[in-house]
Design a protein around this nucleic acid. Sequence first.
DNA 1: AGCTGTCATGTTACAACATATCATTTGCGG
DNA 2: CCGCAAATGATATGTTGTAACATGACAGCT
Lengths: 153, 153
Amino acid sequence: MNHVEKIIGHAEQQCKAHGVRLTEKRKQVLAGLIQSDKALSAYELVDFCTRHYGQTMPAMSVYRILEFLEHEQLVHKLSLANKYVACAHISCGHAHTVPQFLICRQCSKVKEISIQPATIAELRESVNEAGFKLVTTQLEMNCLCEGCVAQAA
Amino acid sequence: MNHVEKIIGHAEQQCKAHGVRLTEKRKQVLAGLIQSDKALSAYELVDFCTRHYGQTMPAMSVYRILEFLEHEQLVHKLSLANKYVACAHISCGHAHTVPQFLICRQCSKVKEISIQPATIAELRESVNEAGFKLVTTQLEMNCLCEGCVAQAA
DNA sequence: AGCTGTCATGTTACAACATATCATTTGCGG
DNA sequence: CCGCAAATGATATGTTGTAACATGACAGCT
Ligand SMILES: [Zn+2]
Ligand SMILES: [Zn+2]
Ligand SMILES: [Zn+2]
Ligand SMILES: [Zn+2]
């Protein structure tokens, strides 16, 4: 039982606990995101599933499945890049707080982090001063990953 | 000379200073963004220009013009919403630093603010700790504006 | 077994967002 | 006026995402 299958197992438990089903197709999409160590677009997932599981995966299904997985917090949507990424914390037990995402603009690698609550609070304060209200503290930031920084140098 | 025209005037000066031309079409697109007090999609701008200036504005042109205006810092692209907004500081003389954007998810109103350098520094530090590098401190945050908060209540 | 309701998936069509490429026009210096 | 470069026009195509309705799978009931 490899790394990916282990995470899928956890995801399945989690779904069972919520009274929803992690079907075969849903597993395929989730597995695609897990085995890729970067964010993928919906259509990249279509290609992955079609190539990998030997039957065409309709784009519509992928979108529906991504919506389901996002709802279950197994997947996060990155609006900054129009891509999707597997949650980095499916297996680690600890409660899932609102994450922040560092997205490599070069290679789409993504790091899911938790910024200091104090920093978040300062941000929220700045927003309030401007007369707006944050609807989520999920942030997405344009970055370069270690590998791509090294390569650029 | 109304508000919009005044800003366009400033923009024209700025372009002249950079040795580039703010043509009629470019003025039309910029004016569309200025008179709207919210972010607009490229195709909303197509509609605006076509309706407002009596000749069809091809989508292709709008994209080219937005690219130009963005390059001149007269317009900002909001990736979080796939929309575009006029710079809030065209007329105010002071140098344009890297902005942060508060985007109302309800009505697309946008506030362009400057977050405390100290807060930005903390963010950058968190990113570095995760082994990534920020490529820009332009942030986009999902918010509700005052009006929409009031309405929701 | 046959019926029925619910959730998941399939299929088709289209809307919305964005870029590529090549032709034509326009503004401007020489 | 000529020739160049910048800007725009025209057409095609690629990418991302949703709407609407049909079909399939399965569980619980009669
Ligand atoms: Zn997560
Ligand atoms: Zn990278
Ligand atoms: Zn600005
Ligand atoms: Zn609003």
